[in-house]
Design a binder for these strands. Structure first.
Length: 434
RNA sequence: GGAGAGGUGUCCGAGCGGUCGAAGGAGCUUGUCUUGAAAACAAGUGUGUCGGCAACGAUACCGUGGGUUCGAAUCCCACCCUCUCCGCCA
């Protein structure tokens, strides 16, 4: 959530920037609630101060009947105030959480997805001297993907991934872990992009794939309707995570991290689950949009000063990874409308899919500033003793389903086979073709 | 699933109706001493909210929520979580 003090100080700006995100926020109503809440809180505190005084007078000895009488009155008044405060507090919190994060100034203002900007295009789509197939047309006849049987077992949007495709997925995982553990590569990317942050490798993490409602809601990522599956029995209070990011960003919930530990960089590997409600018929073929997919996700906790640069590092890493696979791609600077409620800045990478003849989203990098950390209460104790909110960043390393599809389509041969990208061959025992 | 123990500050740990934001210790910071370090000694050291330019003041927080009471970390109820043993199991 946003800092209420910031909203008090900049009501017009908050309303305007929210509108740029396509979110209508009534700051006037929120501030009215804020005022009423503060008045009640102040009144209640005055009564409590009186009560504390009274009970300090009574300590040790038996309280007089007059003291007891006065205490009872205070108690009644407090109870009344409390009854008023509870619903207002509830409404206030709801209204405050409805306010989106403010986009940074370099985010282009736009009111639809179409206003995203292509920041750059890297690599040339290959000229095939045959009509390129999509990943499903390549895989299905060779029994590398079985969606038919999966449908029998689970319904739509699930698949059995098989054979060399699985080996390719594990090769990608190894390649990413290797790359993100390489300080020299990180150092190089920091230098090339002129970033003011340290070269510290990413620690691999396999997080839990489920989480409880309370931390999930605090992460500003719980989107039950469209995205998230409930897990287990209703009484279990567990959700299936829709990205490793959700169980990574909540990891330090309610903690104060020493500044020396920052930045904390993680590369998480997790199966992700998405309901994909409201997408019926969209991307129905193949494995582009599934209810279940594996994903490698980067997550960074940092100080406020380094948050924006950490974001740029994550984008640089994404580009590096895609370049190593020699996939043509575009970097998309998402406009205010498209970056999402908790984001201050959002960059996508769209890879070229010859089977569809278009660039499509394979990566996203979210800079969330302190918006997540405020509600999650993740703070850092600075060297001077001051306690501040951390900044969080998360970004896709590879969404494995989509990147498999990209590799298959870009590396296909006329006879329907797939050349293994060079950087992955060491992780496949030197195998050059699938 | 059965039986038991427990959740207190950065950590360990005491407190079991008012003197408790909380003993004691460790850690950390600063100072004295020292060529330097260690040791010793002294002082300081939680977070949030509200008010204030600030110094500061008020208030809340001892797993969470409710209750009893003039007054709750302390008593009662419910829930959550953790640990140990047994059972089951990857």
């Amino acid at each position: 959530m946003l800092d209420i003090q910031f909203i008090r100080d900049n009501p017009k700006l908050v309303e305007e920037k929210s509108k740029q995100k396509g979110i209508d926020v009534n700051v006037g109503d929120l501030l009215l609630l804020d005022e009423r809440r503060r008045k009640l809180v102040t009144d209640a505190e005055k009564l409590r101060a009186e009560r504390n005084e009274l009970s300090a007078d009574a300590k040790g000895k038996k309280p007089t009947p007059a003291q007891i009488e006065k205490g009872k009155k205070l108690k009644d008044k407090l109870a009344k105030l409390d009854d008023e405060l509870v619903p207002i507090e509830e409404e206030y919190t709801k209204a405050l959480k409805a306010v989106p994060n403010m986009p940074t100034d370099d985010v282009p203002v736009g009111y639809s997805e179409d206003e995203n900007k292509v920041a750059k295009t890297v690599g040339e789509p290959k000229d095939f001297d045959f009509k390129p197939k999509n990943e499903y047309e390549l895989a299905e006849p060779r029994d590398l993907i079985d969606k038919e049987r999966a449908a029998k077992i689970t319904g739509s949007r699930f698949a059995y991934l098989k054979g060399d495709l699985v080996r390719l997925q594990f090769a990608i995982i190894q390649f990413v872990l290797q790359t993100l553990n390489d300080v020299e590569i990180i150092e190089k990317l920091i230098r090339e992009n002129d970033l003011n942050i340290v070269a510290k490798p990413f620690t691999p993490v396999i997080p839990p794939a489920m989480l409880r409602t309370e931390p999930y809601a605090a992460s500003a990522r719980l989107n039950a309707e469209e995205v998230t599956y409930r897990a287990g029995q209703p009484e279990d209070d567990l959700w299936l995570n829709a990205s490793a990011e959700h169980t990574l960003c909540t990891m330090y919930w309610n903690e104060i991290l020493p500044e020396e530990n920052l930045p904390i960089r993680y590369i998480g590997y997790s199966t992700s689950f998405r309901r994909e409600a409201g997408t019926y018929g969209k991307d129905a073929e193949g494995i582009f949009r599934m209810h279940q997919f594996d994903k490698l996700e980067m997550e960074v906790f940092s100080t406020a000063e380094t948050g924006p640069d950490e974001h740029l590092l994550l984008v640089a890493i994404q580009e590096y990874l895609v370049q190593q696979l020699e996939l043509p791609y575009q970097v998309i600077q998402k406009c205010t409308f498209d970056i999402g409620k908790p984001n201050a800045r959002g960059i996508d990478i769209n890879c070229w899919f010859p089977g569809q003849g278009q660039y499509r989203e394979t990566h996203t990098a979210d800079f969330i500033s302190d918006y997540q950390a405020r509600d999650l209460k993740i703070r850092t104790r600075r060297k001077d003793g001051k306690v501040e909110l951390v900044h969080t960043n998360d970004a896709t390393a590879f969404a494995l389903g989509r990147i498999l599809k990209a590799i298959m389509e870009n590396y296909q041969t006329q006879d329907g086979h797939i050349i293994v990208p060079e950087v992955l061959r060491p992780y496949m025992g030197g195998q050059t073709e699938i």
